[in-house]
Structure formats: structure tokens, C-alpha cells
Design a protein around this nucleic acid. Structure first.
Lengths: 227, 227
DNA sequence: TATTATTTTTAGACAAATCTAAAAATTTGT
DNA sequence: ACAAATTTTTAGATTTGTCTAAAAATAATA
């Protein structure tokens, strides 16, 4: 097991995390501009930082060809995400924050440096598998437990599922879900799917609820097999 | 109530905290050199930073005359200390850290910016009054509850007290206390005080224990009135 | 395939926090 | 009280992460 500790600045950690998230969209390399937008900075700053990360062998980079995380970079990014999600779980489950309030605080807490802290926090929280938004919390080795889930908008009339996550974790969307009593764990049945605009009429809590396609595109359900 | 939020860098916060602690020793103004030593930096760097803090009206400073915290600077320092001590309490009481392991982690956690976080943490911990080393945790308004306490070395033969704090919180000293089973809350009776070197023979846990003057100078007892 | 348009990189500058070396002010000792 | 020692400040340089503006490379389009 390789336990070489690398000195990482806050900014470097944030870049690795952003690259990690963008790699899902940009499989063949994350572009400078995409990263600049994600980091809310300028492309020139991104180029500079990428060179630095490349010299540390945390990313693979060739001029004009975007970046990918190296194995080392990936595992550091995963550990940051682990910390972020564990802290989010702590904030909601122990400190009684709402799920729309925890992102910015976890964004700070994720940079606290202490392996012992995270391992003890994990134990204290009894090894949670998902954060308050349904995203998987990787274990100490960096393994994600992956739960079967599908975007609600892809379900058809008559289908049923359990709400297990959200794609958009913005406060605005989470508050919209709160107002409509949509929570993780809720059972949802698709009653109607409007061809015209993709909106859906759902049954949840024994009530009917109409949601737009935009909303349906940001909710994950675990399909329930019907007999 | 003045609720103006001031943007503070990590370094600025650490300077305020150090000045706060040094003000106990240097009542008539903290010298540049003392601060440089505390901050493990050079006097020239201290001068630069002090000018910056002075422009923000967080310290009162006149060339060659040391610094004192302004009212605003003091209240910021107290809030940082509040955060530090609450986090230390959390680490020991909830995450099961030993009292000699928490300082460096709390040193990082104290800079997390969120009033809501601290108020909810305080509630979760049920408003603790003392950190794991016996130091008082100021409340949200910055008030310290002060407990009667005296340095063990100043007690005399026959005196009795309850261990309520330590002056030196270094890991080395705390581990020494652990090895000798000295904990906060323990009842201690002074059996003998050696004139020659100031060492003391104590009775604790119904056993006798000899400690040096150096150790006795770093333990606080709350005196117990004897009848 | 030229010619635009876009993306990315380079070059040079800036602010924050630090450093070294030297100058200025203060304190100490005789 | 004045020279020596100490402390403190200034001046100028460095590093990190950022910026703007311009140049270079790539992609898109007619």
C-alpha cells in the first residue's frame, strides 16, 4: 500500500475535485474552459494550475488536449469527496441542518487534514453509505457502493420507484423538493407522462403531484419491480 | 448589536489569536519579537501583518510600542477560541480522541466559517463550559465562565483540591499526566512539599504519587475547603 | 481549403504573506 | 549620558494563485 502523503493546497484540492466531477461528462479529457467555468476562474489560471498538477503527476496533460486525473490524482479526489460527503451526513444527521444548507460548510470541512479524524468520524456516524442527497460515500479504500438508480424522467407510465438521490443539489432545487414533500426513501408511481412537455403526474404519499421535465431530470429513483 | 462581518484570512485570524494569548503575559502591549516567536515567523513579517490589522482597526498599534487588540479584534479572537475549544470538546467526547491528540485538528477546524455551524455544534454538545484541558469555552456572546483555580505548586501540605485544568497542553505533558492517571475531576491531597526542589508528594486514587515542581506548575486545582 | 471563430496558452502584472539584509529607534550598561 | 546591544521597522525580493491582453493552436464554416 502506497501511503506517500502529498502536500496539497486548498486550490489544488479543489481543482482535482472539479476535474473528477467533470470527467463524467468529458470522458476524453476535461477542457480548460469547462474547468474554468466550474472553478469560476479564467482559462489562463486553469492552464497554470494544470501545469502544476501535471508536474506533481496528479493529472495527465498535453497542451491543447484537456486533462485527465492520474491514478494518484483520482485517489486524492475520491478522498476529498469522501470527506465532503461524510461531513454533509454529519451536518444533517447530527447537527440538524437541512439538506439544502450543508454544501458550503462541507466545502470548507473537506479540506481539514487528518486521516484519523475522518476514520473516527466515519465510525461515529456508523459508516454511512450515502450522503443527504443520496450520493454514495466512498469507503477508506476509495470504493463507491453503487446503488441501482435511474433518472425519473426516463421512467414510463405505470412504473414505480423509490427516490434515492438528486442530480442537482442546489439549494433552490432542494427547497423545491421540500415544498413538494419529496424526500429520499419516498415511493413514487408514475401515473401519467405528458408527451408535449415531458411533465409527469406522480403518485406519492397517496396524493397526486405534477412535476416538470426539468425537475424529473434531476431526481433519481431506484426502480421497483412490479408483479 | 454589531453584526458587521469582516473578511479574515487564515493568517490574520491566527495573529489575532496569538495576540489574545500573549496579552495575558504582555499586558502593556505584545512585542513584535514575542509575536514572531509565537507565530514561528520573522519580526519583519509580524510588522507587516500588524500594519494590516491596524488598518482594519483590529489592533491598536504605534511604531515600536507593541500591539493590543481593539475591542473588535478581541471579540473576533474570542470567537476563534470558542470554535477551537468547542471542536476540541467534540473530538474528545464524540469522536473518542485522547486529549493530547486534538490540538492540531482543532487548529484547522477553528477557521471554518459559519456561525450557524458553531451554534448548532454547541447545541449538539449540550453547551459545554470547558474544553478537554479544562479551559473555559466562551459563550456566543464571548463571555467566559470562570472557575476558581490555582496552580498546584502554590498549594501547601495538607491542602486538597480537584484537578480542573492544565496550563501546558502539550502532548508530552498530557501523556505524562495519562501515565500517572492524573485526569480532570480527580481529587488530590498534598501530603508533602519538598523545600529543596519544590517537588510534591500527592495522594490521589488512594495512592501516593510524587511529581516535580515543573509538573506542579502546570496543573490547576480547584481548592476544596477542609473542615 | 482558406478564412473565421473559438479555444488554449503565453507573457507580464498584481496582491498576499512571507523572507533576508540593512537601517532606524529604543533600551541597557557602565 | 553616551556607546553598545537589542528590538523594530523598512526596502526589496520571492512564492502562490490569480488576472488581462495578446499570441498561438485548433476547430468550424463557407
Amino acid at each position: 500500500m502506497c501511503v506517500i502523503k502529498i502536500e496539497m493546497t486548498l486550490s489544488e484540492e479543489n481543482y482535482l475535485k472539479s476535474i473528477f466531477h467533470l470527467e463524467k461528462k468529458y470522458v476524453r479529457g476535461v477542457s480548460t474552459n469547462a474547468l474554468a467555468e466550474e472553478m469560476e476562474t479564467k482559462a489562463s489560471s486553469v492552464t497554470d494550475m494544470i501545469k502544476k498538477l501535471s508536474e506533481k503527476n496528479l493529472v495527465n496533460y498535453k497542451k491543447y488536449q484537456g486533462v485527465k486525473l492520474s491514478e494518484k490524482g483520482n485517489s486524492i479526489a475520491v478522498q476529498i469527496i469522501r470527506k465532503h460527503r461524510l461531513w454533509e451526513y454529519f451536518l444533517v444527521e447530527k447537527l440538524d441542518f437541512n439538506w439544502d444548507e450543508v454544501h458550503d460548510i462541507a466545502e470548507q470541512l473537506e479540506h481539514i487534514k487528518s486521516d484519523e479524524l475522518i476514520s473516527k468520524l466515519d465510525k461515529f456516524l456508523e459508516y454511512p453509505k450515502r450522503d443527504p442527497h443520496g450520493d454514495p460515500i466512498p469507503d477508506a479504500e476509495g470504493n463507491f457502493a453503487n446503488l441501482e438508480k435511474k433518472i425519473l424522467a426516463e421512467f414510463n407510465e405505470g412504473d414505480q420507484g423509490i427516490c434515492v438521490g438528486v442530480k442537482d443539489s442546489s439549494a433552490a432545487f432542494l427547497q423545491y423538493l421540500d415544498r413538494n414533500k419529496i424526500k429520499l426513501g419516498k415511493s413514487i408511481t408514475i401515473l401519467e407522462k405528458e408527451q408535449f412537455d415531458g411533465s409527469m403526474i406522480l403518485k406519492m404519499n397517496n396524493k397526486e403531484l405534477t412535476i416538470s421535465k426539468v425537475a424529473a431530470n434531476n431526481i433519481y429513483l431506484k426502480p421497483v419491480a412490479l408483479d
